[in-house]
């Protein structure tokens, strides 16, 4: 014989409420803790690896320490920042600006440096020299007048990092290895 169904089913289900007080307590503790440990400003760094030798003293582009190096093709790209604008050049030549003299990239009308144009010129240059066998094709030497602000230098370094090739859609290095050279007189 089957069991007789329980007669208790008529009892109303008692409504149970979840006791969330302990969870709330936990939240109250956790949230201040996490606020204290939160990273409010995201920091980043720019790497500059100066060779351990004396390259930092401004001997700059070609530190010809041995004869083997002299046989290599050197580009020696230098970017000079002055009050008038930014000049791109190397030991031999200087890229001239539109007017034929003065800095390669002049300032904008509002007195700011024209980073977009600098970038354009550098990408042009990079496309011309890439794969031609220059040993320092990723290197640029940065120099500036004494009173150029740090922020300007950092922004220019940002613009030196990478570029996107239009045809292959690849992100390629522009001149990410930055060296510093002595203060312009």
């Amino acid at each position: 014989m089957a069991y007789k169904p329980s007669m208790r089913r008529k009892n109303e289900d008692e409504e149970m409420e979840l006791d969330i007080r302990p969870v709330m307590n936990l939240m109250v503790v956790l949230i201040p803790l996490l606020i204290a440990g939160a990273e409010w400003v995201k920091l980043s760094v720019i790497e500059i690896n100066v060779p351990p030798a004396k390259a930092a003293d401004g001997s700059g582009v070609g530190d010809n320490k041995n004869d083997i190096k002299e046989k290599q093709k050197k580009l020696g790209l230098t970017i000079a920042i002055s009050d008038a604008g930014i000049t791109i050049g190397n030991a031999g030549v200087i890229l001239s600006g539109e007017s034929g003299e003065g800095p390669t990239v002049g300032k904008l009308e509002d007195g700011k440096y024209d980073y977009a144009k600098l970038r354009e010129k550098l990408i042009d240059l990079k496309k011309k020299i890439v794969g031609k066998g220059f040993v320092d094709e990723n290197r640029a030497v940065l120099t500036a007048s004494a009173d150029i602000e740090y922020q300007t230098i950092v922004t220019i370094m940002d613009n030196l990092q990478t570029y996107t090739d239009e045809e292959s859609k690849q992100v390629l290095p522009l001149f990410p290895e930055v060296n510093f050279s002595k203060v312009l007189q």
Partner: peptide, 28 residues
């Protein structure tokens, strides 16, 4: 952000002279 290049360069020069030649510039 406002320090002149001259000062930055002097500090970097001093760092590289005292064996700290791997420099990282901290930025936001």
């Amino acid at each position: 952000e406002k320090i002149p290049f001259e000062l930055l360069f002097k500090v970097m020069f001093t760092c590289s002279k005292t064996e700290f030649y791997k420099m990282r510039l901290l930025t936001i």
